[in-house]
């Protein structure tokens, strides 16, 4: 699998052209009140990254397609390869550590893809905010909408629109699902690292996290038993007995 240079170059060329347009739109200093189109251009110039974001739909859509080599530069095939290796039957005494490493790598790939899909969704929300703001600016000029008589008011207006768009996006099923996928993959990756660490601890006779968890569980259960016993044997309130109580 190879990186899709042609598609990347085309995206880059488009981004450069849009940057050029944005720079050209810088207004000259003037003491005349601006109009909607000047303000819109000014806005674009300060939001160059959003100008870039406007070309993202193609990329965002592609992100959801794990076989797209542009958004999965290691090649969609690698995920397949790792996935197949992880799903293959295991042997009792063969390649145990290798399988754990491969599982961890597979978890990392999934986390990276989940993160890209989630970012793509957020990018769309920012683009929508950008679109709504430009529409509002044009409306303000055309029909005397809300008065924007300072840059700060304009900025606050933009932030309010962006906040609304993000809140709306966050409540969509798509957002909640991509976020769940991201959270799940991040935890799976962390757990896979723990599995590798446990392997290392085992070899070097170091107590692993699982062992410490077992130990803390035993201590916790003993404390609860002690507390219950003290309660049962005491007619008066226990005032915290059995929980390592120290009166101060």
């Amino acid at each position: 699998m190879s990186f899709n240079y042609e598609k990347a170059n085309s995206l880059l060329a488009e981004w450069l052209e849009r940057q050029r347009t944005a720079f050209r739109s810088f207004p000259s200093v003037s003491d005349q009140p601006g109009n909607a189109s000047q303000a819109a251009e000014l806005w674009r110039s300060y939001m160059l990254w959003l100008t870039l974001a406007r070309i993202l739909p193609a990329q965002s859509d592609a992100i959801e397609d794990p076989t797209d080599p542009l958004v999965a530069p290691t090649g969609g095939g690698l995920e397949g390869l790792v996935g197949r290796a992880n799903e293959s039957p295991s042997f009792a005494t063969l390649w145990d550590a290798d399988r754990k490493s491969m599982r961890s790598y597979g978890a990392w790939l999934e986390m990276r893809n989940a993160s890209a899909a989630h970012r793509g969704l957020l990018d769309k929300a920012w683009q929508e905010a950008h679109r709504r703001f430009l529409v509002e600016l044009a409306k303000a000029e055309a029909d005397g909408g809300p008065l924007i008589d300072s840059w700060r008011k304009g900025l606050d207006h933009w932030l309010a629109i962006a906040n609304q768009c993000l809140l709306e996006t966050q409540r969509t099923d798509e957002f909640l699902q991509t976020q769940k996928r991201l959270l799940r993959s991040a935890m799976d990756y962390r757990l896979s690292l723990r599995e590798l660490a446990e392997e290392f601890c085992e070899i070097h006779q170091i107590p692993g996290r699982g062992e410490l968890d077992d130990l803390s569980r035993t201590v916790h259960e003993l404390r609860r038993e002690l507390r219950a016993l003290k309660r049962r044997d005491s007619a008066t309130p226990v005032t915290g007995q059995g929980r390592g109580v120290v009166g101060c």
Binding site: S30, D31, P33, G34, N35, E141, I148, S150
Partner: peptide, 14 residues
């Protein structure tokens, strides 16, 4: 309604 000049903008930035 949009009503601020480039000069005003520069003053705000300052």
């Amino acid at each position: 309604m949009l009503k601020f000049s480039a000069e005003q903008y520069l003053k705000e930035m300052a």
